[in-house]
Every structure is written in C-alpha cells, then in structure tokens.
Nucleic acid binder design. Structure first.
Lengths: 252, 252
DNA sequence: CTTGACTCCGTACTATAGTACGGATGCTAT
DNA sequence: ATAGCATCCGTACTATAGTACGGAGTCAAG
C-alpha cells in the first residue's frame, strides 16, 4: 500500500482541505448532504475523494450567500438527466436562478451604497449620504449623465417600460434606408449592469442603428444596417466578453 | 386627532408593510437593530416612520444574502460622518464591500451553472454537465489567486493567450508610433462579468491599442493612440454604461 | 507493545434568529 | 361602558446549523 507520499483523505484531512470541522462533515453526512464515503476494505474509516471535498466547499460557499442547507440539498440534487423527469427539474432550476438573480441585485445595491459611503468618507465638504440606508435611498441612480446616444438607458432599478414592442412593426418606418432587426437571446448575463454594458458595446459598432439589451428578457434587440454589419459579426461582438448567443432567428 | 384616513403606523401595520411579524420587530428592537420608536405623548404604543420600515426591509433583504444580524448591525452603523473617525469606518466599509463582491462572484458562478443546467435539460443528445457541481467544475474559475491583472475569467472555451504581460515594458516597444497609456480607476463594477464586458467595449474603440480591465483592481489600463482618441473620450465611453471614473492621472 | 493521534458513533450542548404565550393595559366602535 | 381588538412586556419555546463530549476501536511510530 503506497500511502507514504499522499496519505488517504480521511475525515480530518478532508475537513482541513474543505475548511470545515470534522464534526461538520459528519453532520452533513447525517443530513444527507453528502453520502458517506465508502470505507474501503480494511479500516472502517471514511476516505474522501476530491469531488466530495468540492461538494463540501460548495455547500459552505453557497451557505455564505444565504441559502439554507435544505435549499443547497435541492440544488445539489438537481440533475439534467434525460431519463428523469426533466420539466420538474427545470422548474426548480429556474426558480433557483431567479433567487440567485434577486440576491445579486440586492448585493449590487449594497455594493454601490458601500462605494458611495466610501467615496463620501474622506470628503471634507458637506456630506449627504451618511449611512448605507441614505446611500441606498439616494440610489435611484439617475446621477449619471449618459444622454448622448439618443435613447436613455434604463438605469438599474426596474423601469422596464423601455423599448420593447415584442414583435411590432416599427422597423418598416426605417426600412427604406436598409435596416434589419434581430433579437438575440443571450446567456451569461447575471446582472443588470452587464446588460447595460453590453448595450453600450453594441451601440458602438459601426452599422448598428440602435440596440436595447434587457436583462429581464436576456435578450438584445438590435437594429442594424446589413450593408455595414451582419448578424455573424454581432454575435462575435457579444461573445467576445463571454456571453453566449443561443438563438439566431432574425425577425425582419 | 386626524386618524381617519391613514391610521398611525403601529407595530402590526408596520410589520405587515415590512413583511415581518410583530414579534420580529420587537426582537430587532431588543437586539438594537432598530431603535424603539417614540410613543408620542398619549398612548404608550410604538409608531413607526417610513424610514424605519425601510430599515426593517433592509435588514430582511440583507439577511437573505447571507449576512448575520450582527453584520447588518455593523452595516447600519457605518456612517460617513466627518466628525467621527473616518478611517475606521472606511476600513470596515471596504471589508464589507469585499464581502459583497465575493458573494456576487459566487452567485454569478451558481447562476451560470444553473443556466448551463437549464440549457442541458431538454437536450436529447449527450449530456455532460448533469448537476450543478458538474456545471461548476466545467468552469474552472478557481484559479483566481494570482495574475490579477489579466483577464483570467475567460468564460467557457476561448483561450487566453491574449495580450498581457502584467507590468512588462512592452509599451516602450510601441512607443515610437505614438502610444499613450492610462490607468483609470473605475467605480460601479460589482462583478467580473462587467469588467470583461467593459474591456471588450474599450478594445472596440478606434484608437485603442489594448485594454485590460480588472475587477480586482477596479481599474482599466488602456493603451491608445492619442492622435485618434483621447482620455476624455475614453472616460465618456466608460461612463456611458453607468460606470464612473474616479481618477484621471495617467502614467506614461 | 505502548503511546498518541485519529476515527467511530451517539448524544448533548450552543448560538442565531426568530415565534409563541399570557397576563395586563389601552383604544375605539357600538 | 363594555366587547373586542391591538398593544405592552417578559419569558419560554422552536428550528437551523453546527460544536463538543466521551467511550471505544484503529493505526503507525517510537
């Protein structure tokens, strides 16, 4: 038995690697969050695999962001298994994703409030936003000018009311000077800020007449001059920072 | 006493508005999270203001994202008060902001994993990423510690191998054909994804030779041709999607 | 072959964050 | 004025998520 170099990952070593206590691992086991690792042949000791360590770390990290062990258990048991009932899993996953997004939104808000607080901190002049709550309530965030490219961009907060007109035919107005429109489904956006940044990115492209990216729909609606830019190029632009375009059916 | 229209916000009404139980409000009071509202003159009953309702809602929401009541108390008592000791507050606020960022990162990771799971779900073909853990480990974003100046991240696929050279002096190479470099401190980024998107946005600008935006440093390092674009313009580009540039000292 | 560190298991204790109870008092509408 | 609520306060209970304890067995080195 070559155990000289790397000793088997018994519970204490596993716990140290995962950053938890031994008792915690046993507790998770009892809760059914991790299955009891096989105790191979001799020695009735648990021996852990790196996957199990990763699982424990995941549990810990996910707890840190406000999920209960019960919820984590649900997360862990989601499987995109074609043999299992997929739609039920999908429903759960979508619900959890919404949870995650809500949390991200809240964190963004707090993050910005903290930034405001930090920025206000060493100021010698007058200060208005003195506490996080002040900073938060000041945060309808319309303070940023923007206004240059025609459309206003719906800043954080809701205010959907933005472009839209799901399938309306206002593009016929602009048809003569050769415009195409396309709606691209975009994956990988997890916050409103990303959507806005992507929108600005698209609008900078030569040939793009207008672009509206909404986080809620996970979609980008782009009006462009097909003589100057094409859909392939748009997709490339979108995917460069790490998003994915999951559809390509254009609607014009 | 005009109480006909809007009745005073006594504890039960306040609780309903804040979405908590009456006992919870009293509990927060005892914990010192909210001060006991004055019971004005007659009637020894608590009467709440809308600010206090907001405070309670904040407590709730902040709990949802994994902060303990103790931490929330710290958050709430941070004040950018010039009379108070500012540096101590600053240190705390910065620490909390880091917390917030870490949580956002984790949420982004989980969000992406869930998206992958949902995407894999109704597929009829082969499936590799069957569980969140699979989906997470496919995105090996664990290697964060070093090389913060790069744009590691690099979502799915996409080889890094990009430009880079942390602090190397390759800009002297390109010096002769008129290049300036500037490092801009950027506020308003709360996630890695935003940084990447902003980076892509900058790189698309005519006149920008190279751009590296790091979330960790909250900074953008840009090499540009001053004959084609200037710092003012860069700042405009960055601020359009909602970021703020907090410095302008260039370093070339 | 003994010693000390590690493991097993079950049970018991702790901290956090509420939630419920219950008797006394207050408000207000019939 | 009195029934029927809401409110007051303190205390007690609950659920979640560990953490600690203790006795017994296991392993590896001195």
């Amino acid at each position: 038995m070559p155990r000289s170099e790397v000793q088997a990952l018994t519970i204490a070593r596993a716990a140290r690697q995962a950053g938890v206590g031994v008792e915690t691992i046993r507790f998770y086991e009892r809760r059914g969050l991790i299955e009891q690792p096989s105790k191979p042949s001799s020695s009735g000791f648990r021996v852990y695999s790196t996957e199990q360590i990763a699982r424990i770390k995941f549990i810990r990290q996910t707890q840190q962001i406000g999920f209960s062990l019960h919820e984590i258990q649900e997360l862990l048991s989601l499987r995109a298994d074609p043999s299992a009932d997929c739609s039920a899993v999908r429903v759960q996953a979508v619900a959890k994703l919404e949870d995650v997004r809500r949390k991200i939104e809240q964190l963004h808000r707090i993050g910005e409030a903290l930034e405001a607080l930090i920025a206000a901190c060493p100021g010698h002049g007058e200060i208005e936003a003195c506490t996080i709550l002040d900073a938060l309530s000041d945060a309808p965030r319309d303070a940023v000018p923007l206004l240059s490219l025609g459309e206003r961009a719906s800043r954080r907060k809701r205010g959907k009311t933005d472009m839209k007109r799901p399938n309306g035919h206002r593009l016929s107005d602009t048809k003569e000077n050769d415009v195409k429109s396309v709606t691209l489904k975009i994956e990988g956006m997890n916050c409103d800020g990303c959507a806005e940044t992507l929108q600005a990115l698209l609008r900078r492209q030569a040939g793009v007449k207008s672009a509206a990216v909404t986080f809620g729909d996970r979609a980008a609606c782009v009006l462009y001059d097909p003589g100057m830019i094409d859909e392939e190029r748009l997709v490339t632009v979108i995917e460069r920072p790490g998003f994915r375009v999951s559809n390509r059916s254009d609607g014009a």
